[in-house]
Write a protein that binds this DNA or RNA. Sequence first.
DNA 1: ATTGATTAACGTTATTTAACGTTTTATGGT
DNA 2: ACCATAAAACGTTAAATAACGTTAATCAAT
Lengths: 229, 229
Amino acid sequence: MKKILYIEDEPYLARIVKDTLTLKGYQVLHKKDGSALLDAINSFAPDICLLDVMLPEVDGFTLARHIRNINAGIPIIFLTAKTQTEDLVKGFSAGGTDYLKKPFSMEELIVRIDNQLKIMGKDAGALQTLPDEVALKQFRFYPGRFELHAPAGVIKLSNRESQILAMLCAHLNTPVDRRELLKTVWGDDSFFNSRNLDVYIRKLRGYFTGAEGIEIVTLKGQGYHFVVA
Amino acid sequence: MKKILYIEDEPYLARIVKDTLTLKGYQVLHKKDGSALLDAINSFAPDICLLDVMLPEVDGFTLARHIRNINAGIPIIFLTAKTQTEDLVKGFSAGGTDYLKKPFSMEELIVRIDNQLKIMGKDAGALQTLPDEVALKQFRFYPGRFELHAPAGVIKLSNRESQILAMLCAHLNTPVDRRELLKTVWGDDSFFNSRNLDVYIRKLRGYFTGAEGIEIVTLKGQGYHFVVA
DNA sequence: ATTGATTAACGTTATTTAACGTTTTATGGT
DNA sequence: ACCATAAAACGTTAAATAACGTTAATCAAT
């Protein structure tokens, strides 16, 4: 059964969409806004995301970017009344894979959901996704369970530790912008001058000490680069 | 340049679409119907197909199936006045990857074309790919690990050192423009008057001192030439 | 009370800047 | 052509800066 993460602030519409999709056999998790989004992604592990664009606090485009940061492969459909081409561009460049204009028919939504699941499900090779279990040489990371299985034993990760490690894993062997990390994990980059992130990087490094071929490399002025080779 | 195969029987619309896309830098092959379709696919080798649905002889859905039979990965966008959900379903189950209702704006078409190209992984990434290991005589450079393995031992490279060495390796035994180096590593060439790059070149030269047959040659006014012979 | 998250204070290092030296290339008069 | 001189470009070194690392203390939420 396919799992759908659905973010929409308008209660009446949300109700209709959720009920219809549920009736059609999807498992739907509905949220009114993007708070605790990363937790939802990791624990609920949706197959596809439906995002309203105009939301009270953080808009849907921004949410899409955060989702992309920890999962490069998941389909994201925007549902919005914004019909300007400019918004369409924003949507796709934020990592969206389809864009549906309100008002839409439930039939069309379902068809487009199925289509996205079909085409994104194909060559997962080019599009890296963050699965339930991430193999990191002799380690295993379970993002949804907040657990890092080391040779020595199981390390229970905190929320933040897990989020940051998930982000590093999503960008395995490629750079991650420090700002992106801060924005994705903390919601904004007002912590840019804070040493908070460094503290967590240190903790994560601690878990991997002595592990040959696993390293979190600092790219000064840019971010981090999780090397597993 | 991306190649588009466009099948549309209505001459006026076809003209507008073809001209606009050509102006936008795509290479467009327009056909009035699906005859000799497979030849067109094979010889023209398009990156994406735009198919009208209602065509005189064979309809677009059928054409899509034929295309899918010989190419599982190419994106197919339907352009049609048929707005019934049923047609949408037909389109996607025929192997279509997007479905655009007439009348559509050229802007939206372009955005959706680019999006499909991106999703299907045909997007020309500007990432220069070096192999995991670059052999430089008695040295070995691991760009992904920020490591230079010298006879004396492993040298841990900094971000900048690694970037510059990677760039030199990408142009091994051929010249590299100084400006290009600056732009690639620092994002722009505003450092053109700075001695910053020279400092790093010196560091790299330091790692290779005494190594017979390895040299970073200065091409004054042009750039550098990484000689390994 | 215990755990996780954040802040603060100070240590460390990659990167940049600055100052000056060296080498190559261009220029100009004879 | 010749040489002198200037100009441009790069080399070298050390100091300054900005960015990150580390540790412990504090805060906040069960």
